[in-house]
Design a protein around this nucleic acid. Sequence first.
RNA 1: GCGUUCAUAGCUCAGAUGGAUAGAGCAACAGCCUUCUAAGCUGUGGGUCGCAGGUUCGAAUCCUGCUGGACGCACCA
Length: 696
Amino acid sequence: MDIFKETLKTFIVNIIKEEKKIDVSKPQAEKLIKNPPDESFGDYCFAAYYMQNYGFQGKPETAAADLYNLCIVRFGEIAGLFDKIEIKGAYVNFFVKREIFVSEVVKETVDSGSDYGRDVPEKPLTVAIDFSSPNIAKPFGVGHLRSTVIGMSLSKIYEFCGHKVIKINYLGDFGTQFGKLIEAFCRYEDIDFSEFEKDPVKVLYGLYVRIHKDEQTDLTVEEEAKNRFKTLEDFMSVNKRSFEEYLGAITDAVNTKKKSIDNANIPKTITLSEENKNFFCGTAEGQYNLWKIFRKLSIVEFKRIYKSIGIEFDVYEGEAESAEFSKDIKEILLESGIAEISEGAVIVNVKGIKAPALIAKSDGTSLYLSRDIVTAVSRMAKYNFDKMIYVVGSEQALHFSQLFGIFGILKEDAEKIKDVKNFKHYASMIDGRLVHVKFGRIIGMSTRKGNLVFLEDYIEEARLKAQEKLEERLKISEDNFFAEINDGGKKLTEGLEKLEGIRAITENVEKQSLIQEQKKEPAESEKNRIYLTSLKVGIGAVIFNDLKTRRTTDVNFNWDNVLSFEGQTGPYLQYTVSRINSLLKRLGVNETDLKNDAKSFSFSKNDTDFDDIFLIAKQIYGLKTALHSAVEQNEPSVLSSFALDLASHFNKYYQNHRLIGRDYDYVKPRIAVLVSVKTVLVSILNLLCIPILEKM
RNA sequence: GCGUUCAUAGCUCAGAUGGAUAGAGCAACAGCCUUCUAAGCUGUGGGUCGCAGGUUCGAAUCCUGCUGGACGCACCA
């Protein structure tokens, strides 16, 4: 609750009402109050341009003067919270009482802890978020990271803002590409089956690359792949459930736990081996099993990668599941006259879009648009979502506008549709609830070998760089120590105390020999710490790089930028948090005591550090606004910018004002400020999927 | 050709939905570690907001045209 803004709003609305006899509606009142671009213009302002609508006449400056005079006369009404009012050009600027402002903000933050900024919406939404959605035929590269991380972050942001979120990973486990993969497996004689055991994904990727290369010169590849895909799809549709059964089952048992796709049975007796190749390649059933095996192997691999960067899903879905019913969709759309046949294929004309939306190929096999229709309907049945977000690259914008357009038609022409177990009901309520959260491409990302960089290699590169930097820093603190030892004037005992100090901070190699209590192998544990720290830093750098810019712009990839860890980077934020941790530790802070003391914090305007504290408080105060616009725009980068600003304000403070060695009375309220900054930074790092480090 | 989208400092990007003097970070240069972690801080230089019109009291932001880039446009996903 923004008491300052609310007070000001009431104040101004009353003035307009009583002096100018004009009523101001709530949303209009909201627009009256702005935040000035510069601190010297105060904390809130009214622009006279807006006031002209409310009976303040003349030039903007005159209108501003008019308003200003009225405000001055009635200043007593807001004097409890505001310090002064100024007029500057066409603006009337308001300055808050800073001591009150700061202590209010700090109290609220310390009180609410990790819930600070959390919102309780009047009507929480159920939001389904479809993200990451890797293609099983392709390895998990950095291209997928963007969708994964944006989607995960949005999920967390929506949840933090009080909505119910369902995180969906919609696996690309179907389509002609699988025909290609199967064809590759069957075509090449020299597949290393022992390698398949060890690193299946690598082998699959090898097949993928090879078949795409051969496709350029050998025209039979595509043809064979198509045939294989058709065989696969036909085989799968032989014993399929009816569409009625499918939708019925969802409707009847929305809450029963669905069998997860990755638990799909793979017959144990059939192993992936040279001997079984005829079975896999020669029969429809064999191809089906091969597909299952490929899919299973890939999912295991994906899950491992997700775990390593802290990503998780509520549901794994697959295209194959929807593919089962894409023919039903085709028929429903044709029967109702929504779709038509053109050049042998089934299409829908969506108004406003010239390109026809392709539902099915002329050979009868399905296309992903038809599968997406099934998926959206079944999700509506399952989750009854208010909003469904697709986090998919902007190159698929046309596809989604076609998909959304089709649901527009399904709503408008609902009468025409034959109802199949509530299909009409679900399909007609989807319109207007779908959102395509698109993002730009990553340009210029490549290795020496190919153009696809594996996520793990990418992270490892960042980790190594972080480790290098960490070791360098540890060495510097050692060097400083020895430099001091050698400095003639120093006493050795003094130096030893110092050594202990330094090593306590860094937990360096010899710490264990100074304090011979722990049983662990010192070198081992230190090595481990360095590894984990640099891994977290590396992951933080990589993830932040994808979340720091607005989604829609293409990212110009630059190794130097990602690996620099300075300035506007994830590690800068991580560093700031661990710096606060270190300081709190040195100050001997007990955070629960602090909470009990929260009511007694007070700050004095006369303290030299007050202006800097005020800036920090003001930034913290902006968290709610930032969260709102992040949700409104489906844009995590709002929070990354916010966090960078906050960290920057804090680091300035840290540099300019020392706390150790001051009186407790002086330090206590400032500890609350430290805790507030840490609380907010940690919240945001969590929302951005960036690992937090106790110390760096 | 049609559609979508973008163009802001040498580089990477912000710019609160049309408002006050366009801001950061890298890089460059000059400083700050016997004092809470230098992955930090301070300072300097760096701009015709792609170009040209238009709407407006007011435009980086909205409209039109042009230039240049990216992406998409019938059986891939």
